[in-house]
């Protein structure tokens, strides 16, 4: 027994060291799991508050650019409104309400990005809306130009979003022109680019084609743009294409994003649960 105590005493620093590292490793593993406590992320009140203050000052610098972007967006929206007005006339004439129903299923909650990262293998955003504004874990996040990510955790006033630039994120997507389904996953190297997986060699695909969200997951609206095909490789050893896309969302200058609330999520969950129970 005495020997044991002597041994422990002699290596007391080493054992303390091991204990600390064990705690850290446990934290890392737990945090790598998909969901985790909001208290230990950047949506933590104090952390988010500090980011908010910093953002208050830095946002002035970005104002000219943001004005430009908003003006551009406005222009696009006006065009869309004009287009949609025509569309509605046509739809009403055809009495085809399906499309309108679909649009009514989603609600867009605007939020400001108060913190963003690009250059790590696991990137996150913090936004200034939380549970009070109706945001919940798992909701999709988009910008006006493309898909951004998925809500990881939220507190009352803030949320942490897993960016599309995260090694564990995959987006169910498809090729817009021929509806062939595929998966988008970040390439870990460049925040402007991503890989598209699971497209067979026989598929007709060319540079410049648009990849959009498939809408299967019900997290992102169907047909929301993800990226534009940049390069296509035909590997000899693999039956799938190696496709690289340029992301349509500009992650480096994100200021405003929209959190997507699927109003019918409860119904969908209920249905899917019923199917699971049936099995």
């Amino acid at each position: 027994m005495r020997q044991l105590f002597l041994f422990l005493y002699r290596y007391r620093f080493f054992f303390t060291f091991l204990a600390w590292e064990f705690v850290c490793t446990w934290l890392i593993i737990r945090n790598n799991a998909y969901q985790s406590a909001a208290a230990f992320t950047s949506s933590n009140q104090l952390v988010a508050y500090i980011y908010d203050i910093r953002n208050y000052f830095t946002s002035y610098i970005a104002l000219p650019r943001m004005n430009d972007e908003l003006a551009q967006e406005n222009k696009k929206l006006y065009e869309q409104v004009a287009f949609l007005k025509k569309e509605i006339e046509v739809l009403e004439m055809n009495k085809a309400k399906q499309n309108a129903d679909f649009l009514a299923n989603y609600e867009y909650i605007p939020a400001k990005v108060i913190n963003n990262s690009l250059l790590r293998t696991k990137n996150y955003l913090t936004i200034n809306k939380g549970r009070k504004d109706g945001i919940e874990e798992g909701m999709g996040v988009v910008s006006n130009s493309g898909i951004i990510g998925k809500v990881k955790a939220c507190t009352d006033n803030y949320s942490t979003v897993i960016s599309l630039l995260h090694e564990n994120i995959q987006v169910a997507s498809r090729i817009k022109k021929n509806n062939i389904i595929c998966t988008t996953k970040w390439d870990l190297l460049d925040y402007r680019e991503a890989n598209v997986l699971e497209i067979g060699r026989h598929v007709n695909l060319s540079v410049g084609d648009t990849i959009v969200a498939s809408g299967f997951s019900e997290v992102y609206p169907e047909n929301y743009p993800i990226g534009i095909v940049k390069t296509i490789n035909y590997p000899k050893s693999n039956s799938f294409l190696e496709v690289k896309i340029r992301l349509t969302a500009d992650f480096a200058s994100l200021t405003y994003v929209y959190v997507i609330k699927n109003k019918k999520q409860n119904e969908i969950d209920k249905l899917e649960k019923a199917i699971k129970e049936d099995k």
């Binding site: 490793t25 934290l27 950047s42 990262s117 942490t160």
Partner: peptide, 8 residues
């Protein structure tokens, strides 16, 4: 906490 990399 600030980097969202708990433990690293």
């Amino acid at each position: 906490l600030f980097y969202d990399t708990l433990g690293v």
